[in-house]
Design a binder for these strands. Structure first.
Length: 226
DNA sequence: TCATTAAACGCGT
DNA sequence: ACGCGTTTAATGA
């Protein structure tokens, strides 16, 4: 096997939990794919039988609430992984996946994913941590879904993109345009611009061209819930 | 009305 | 070329 691929696998968020033979298995089951801006990675209802990691770019998960009424969005940035729920439950996707900009993905085929699940304690440890973080997001979504405050959605999405487990390679500054913020929060560019300016006035973020520096992650993630 | 939207334009990088 | 701020006109509550 090519050593550069093994090195690449070593840099993934869950790799440090794995031993050498497990890394070997993982590397064999991974392939890279490119999705141009605005392209769909999968539609709701599809059986995409791969666990998916974001190498570069930005992916939007759009989930529809149980009532089928409100749709909410979660961004996944570079280094983040998604789809483990659909893998584990062997069911179709409950959400759309869209590349918000040119995006490179790593796909792990299902057999490899299941093999790691069954044989690697470290891999399971990572999955539990990941699922726990996601659970926190969806709890937060149901909390402030009833008061659809655009600013609160923007604030939460920004804080989520800084989550070190779910978007590990996103560092101190978010390289994200205001248009992309709008897409993630389900609002237009104008409203995104207004919300960001208000958040900046409140001292929670620092606005730069093409980038946002969060100043108070705690306040952002709790925005709207007192 | 009032808020929101897409489209367009201009500005600065 | 791109991100951003603003204006405009259309739409809908």
């Amino acid at each position: 096997m090519a050593t550069d691929k093994k090195e690449m696998v070593r840099s993934l968020i869950w790799a440090k939990e794995l031993g050498e033979p497990e890394l070997e298995i993982a590397a064999k089951g991974l392939s890279e794919r490119f999705y141009p801006k605005n392209s769909y990675i999968c539609h709701r209802g599809d059986r995409l039988d791969s666990w998916t990691g974001v190498v570069t770019g930005l992916v939007k998960m759009s989930a529809v609430s149980l009532s089928g009424k409100a749709t909410t969005f979660v961004g996944v940035g570079a280094g983040g992984w998604l789809g483990e729920g659909s893998m584990l439950k062997n069911e179709e996707r409950k959400y759309d996946l869209v590349a918000l900009r040119d995006t490179r993905l790593l796909m792990m085929n299902k057999a490899t994913f299941m093999a790691l699940c069954e044989n690697s304690v470290g891999f399971n440890r990572f999955l539990v941590r990941q699922l726990n973080e996601r659970l926190g997001q969806f709890v937060a979504i149901t909390e402030h879904d009833r008061s659809f405050d655009a600013k609160a959605r923007v604030a939460r999405n920004l804080s989520w993109l800084c989550n070190p487990v779910l978007s590990p390679q996103v560092g101190g500054v978010l390289e994200i345009t205001q248009e992309e913020v709008g897409l993630l929060a389900g609002i237009s560019r104008q409203v995104a611009n207004r919300c960001l300016k208000e958040l900046a006035d409140e001292g929670l973020i620092d606005l730069q061209p093409g980038a946002i520096r969060p100043l108070d992650l705690e306040a952002l993630s709790n925005y709207g819930s007192g």
